[in-house]
Computed example of a mutant assay.
Amino acid sequence: MKLTYEILPAGQAEQCKELCNELMTYQKSMAVIKPELFDTMSFETRMLPSIESALHNHLVAVKDNGKMIGYVYSNISPKAAYSNDFATFFDLDSVSGDLVGCLSQFYIKDGYRQYGIGSKLFEMSLKWLSHFREAEDLFIFVSNGNENALNFYQRKGFVATHDILDGFITVLRNKN
């Protein structure tokens, strides 16, 4: 393996399209609650709208010999962006400021997991998020059935606070 980590400008998010769609397929395959909700989720309906509504975006791609094998996408957004027609992701009054940080998407191709790539991407994301002091509250949303991801984030210090959409998503945050 010859791994490289590259910070991509939001305008180059298209490089992650295939992996983003693979993430949606993976999440659907793991889901035991409402897997059909993933049928309409794709790069165009998840990542692009998130990038457009965020105030700040951070996209890190990891490549093996130039081939995309994973990415993490994080953003800083107004907390109001997390209450929409799809769901209200957390109690807006529980957030101390007007902005929140979110580790929004995280995916590593099968065969590349367990090599520390996830920990490195996670650390890069949190380091970037920590630069925004006005966004004290950080969130991660884990789809049901993805116990490996849930356990990973909990080992990294995030706490599961509640479920939304009848258990479809578990909400984790950096503090109670």
Rank of each mutant, 00 (worst) to 15 (best):
K2T: 13
T4G: 03
T4M: 05
E6Y: 00
L8C: 11
P9H: 13
P9W: 11
C16D: 00
L19C: 11
E22A: 14
T25Y: 02
M30E: 10
I33D: 02
K34T: 09
F38K: 08
D39A: 11
D39G: 05
F43V: 05
R46L: 14
L48C: 04
P49D: 05
E52I: 12
S53F: 08
L55Y: 11
L59R: 08
L59V: 10
V60E: 09
K63R: 15
G66P: 07
G66I: 05
V72R: 04
S77N: 12
P78I: 07
K79C: 03
K79G: 02
N84R: 05
L92H: 01
S94H: 07
V95T: 13
C102K: 07
L103W: 04
Q105I: 00
I108V: 15
K109E: 12
D110R: 13
G111N: 08
G116A: 09
I117C: 06
G118M: 06
K120I: 13
K120F: 03
L121I: 08
L126H: 05
K127R: 11
F132S: 06
F132E: 08
L138P: 00
N144I: 00
N146Q: 07
N146G: 03
N146H: 08
E147N: 11
F158E: 04
I164H: 01
G167M: 08
G167E: 06
I169A: 00
